[in-house]
């Protein structure tokens, strides 16, 4: 345990410090999230009845896109300056270190989405009863997005233009999270119990938490070879 703890702590601290030094970049996915959500009322209708019906879908689709766009930074800079190779060469399990990096990335991009989501809920006329469900689904769902996305990013990190390709690889795999997340929020706004959907999201989270680091590590080794 102790032998595994120190690299975990070091890597987590390093990633967070690095992100802290580029504070301005941190806000970008968040701003993207806010802007996309605010586009929908403009494009569809400002009427709160219409908005209320599509609010869960809007917020979840925007969260999906924001999570995907922020993924590009997950390994890119480490790959370019060579530190990713050094991380892969250490004696510690690469899967564990990948998990740490994904966790740091989620703290910096997923968690802010969670915090700002109720505000956006207000913008799109989401009933207050559904706010807690929205937070809960995002808390369970955004880590899944980061974990699945990490596999995709690891596969294309060596490529020059990976951005559009990433969406092709990752978005189809995001569909179950979208279905359960948006559905839970929609169910909650009509005042029905949502525990089933939350269990499903938790199951997806535990599945991706256990499997994705191995796939990501394998993909990284291929990209580094």
């Amino acid at each position: 345990m102790s032998s595994n703890f120190s690299p975990v702590y070091t890597l987590l601290k390093r990633d967070l410090t690095l992100a802290y030094r580029h504070r301005s970049e941190l806000a970008n996915p968040l701003l993207f999230f806010v802007i996309v959500v605010s586009l929908f009322p403009l494009g569809i209708s400002p009427e709160s009845k219409v908005l209320q019906q599509i609010a869960p879908g809007i917020i979840w689709v925007a969260a999906l896109l924001a999570a995907m766009l922020s993924l590009d930074n997950l390994f890119r800079s480490d790959f370019e300056d060579g530190s990713l190779e050094q991380i892969a060469l250490t004696a510690h399990s690469l899967s564990l270190l990948v998990l740490v990096k994904v966790f740091a990335h989620w703290l910096l991009t997923g968690l802010p989405l969670l915090v700002i989501a109720p505000l956006l809920g207000v913008l799109v006329a989401l009933p207050t009863d559904a706010m807690w469900t929205l937070m809960a689904t995002l808390a369970l769902g955004t880590p899944v997005l980061s974990l699945i996305g990490a596999i995709g990013v690891a596969l294309i990190v060596g490529l020059r233009r990976g951005g559009v390709l990433l969406s092709l690889l990752v978005l189809p795999l995001y569909i179950p999270v979208l279905i359960f997340g948006a559905n839970a929020v929609a169910t909650a706004s009509s005042g029905l119990p949502v525990i089933g959907q939350l269990y499903f999201l938790a199951a997806l989270l535990s599945l991706s938490l256990t499997l994705s680091p191995f796939a990501t590590a394998a993909a990284l080794r291929i990209s580094l070879s």
Partner: peptide, 28 residues
């Protein structure tokens, strides 16, 4: 050769996901 291994991983991830996607779509 690298392309083959990378898309192999992607295909395997897809295989794990296909039943999940299918049943979540059915449920949806």
């Amino acid at each position: 050769r690298i392309a083959a291994r990378a898309s192999g991983i992607l295909a395997l991830v897809g295989v794990v996901n296909i039943p999940i996607i299918h049943y979540s779509v059915v449920w949806w």
